[in-house]
Simulated scan of single mutants.
Amino acid sequence: MVKNIASFVTLTLTICVIMYVSFSSNEAVDFSKYSTKGMDLNYTVSNDEGGNADLLASNESEMLFSPYLGKSFVGFKEALAFKESGGNYFSVNTFGYLGKYQFGKETLRMIGIRNATKFLKDPRLQERAFVANAERNKWILRRDIKNFVGKRINGIIITESGILAAAHLAGPGNVKKYLRSYGLDNFADGYGTTVHHYMKRFSGYDTSYVKPNKEAKAI
């Protein structure tokens, strides 16, 4: 029993050190080192769209936090990756979207990646691409983040992480349309997943690590 407690405390301290080092530095962080592959995680994201529970509700019974990642930026990117590809770096979907975060080739070109084959084989590059794309989207949506975060649209409270997740799904232009139409213009991807759904599903994560950058590149 004592041995098990000591192991748990050691694991917890190790994770805290990793998180502190990751977010206390302004330098680029290689998030591929922190993959949750093989771990049994309790994601904050449900497997369906059902239910009306507010993701920002104070009732803890309505919110499931991973004991490892919680609502951190690493938790955000891993939850998004889990939804996109099951966290599989080598996944290619039926529409040709690539990797752990399911990037389209046009988006990759905008952040400096032109070799899709190399991209698919390089987990570190995929992690850099995710951060670069989020930084670029945050710059494009900076005014909308300022104007809409905290407001309620279609029954959900708008958060920065929800906006960035929706931009990853649909592109920043479609997120602008959704917000500025107060939810009337609700883009859906080829599988029927909407901007509204991502706004709700990825609400309330800490994305302060992402800095707005018009010229963000993965390479």
Results as ranks from 00 to 15, higher is better:
His196Glu: 12
Ala134Glu: 14
Thr207Glu: 02
Ile140Met: 02
Val92Ser: 05
Arg152Ser: 03
Trp139Ala: 13
Ser61His: 05
Asn93Gly: 06
Thr12Val: 13
Asn93Arg: 03
Glu62Pro: 00
Ile5Ala: 13
Arg109Asp: 00
Glu84Trp: 02
Leu13Thr: 11
Arg180Glu: 10
Ser66Phe: 10
Val29Trp: 00
Tyr101Thr: 09
Val210His: 01
Ser32Lys: 05
Lys3Asn: 09
Ala170Val: 11
Phe82Gly: 04
Ala167Tyr: 08
Tyr182Ser: 09
Ile15Val: 14
Trp139Thr: 03
Lys138Thr: 13
Gly75Leu: 09
Leu69Thr: 07
Thr44Trp: 10
Lys121Asp: 14
Ser35Tyr: 00
Tyr68Met: 09
Met39His: 06
Gly173Ile: 08
Ser161Tyr: 10
Ile156Arg: 13
Ser58Met: 07
Thr117Pro: 02
Lys37Gly: 03
Thr194Leu: 05
Ile145Val: 15
Thr117Phe: 02
Asp144Leu: 08
Phe130Val: 06
Phe90Ile: 06
Ile113Thr: 09
Ser7Asn: 14
Gly190Glu: 11
Tyr68Trp: 13
Asn115Cys: 03
Ser66Met: 08
Ala28Pro: 01
Lys200Trp: 09
Asp122Thr: 07
Met1Leu: 07
Thr10Lys: 12
Ser181Trp: 05
Arg143Thr: 10
Gly173Trp: 01
Ser161Glu: 10
Leu98Met: 04
Phe130Trp: 03
Ser25Phe: 01
Gln102Asp: 12
Gly162Glu: 07
Ala218Gln: 05
Asn213Ile: 10
Arg136Glu: 05
Val2Gly: 03
Met110Cys: 01
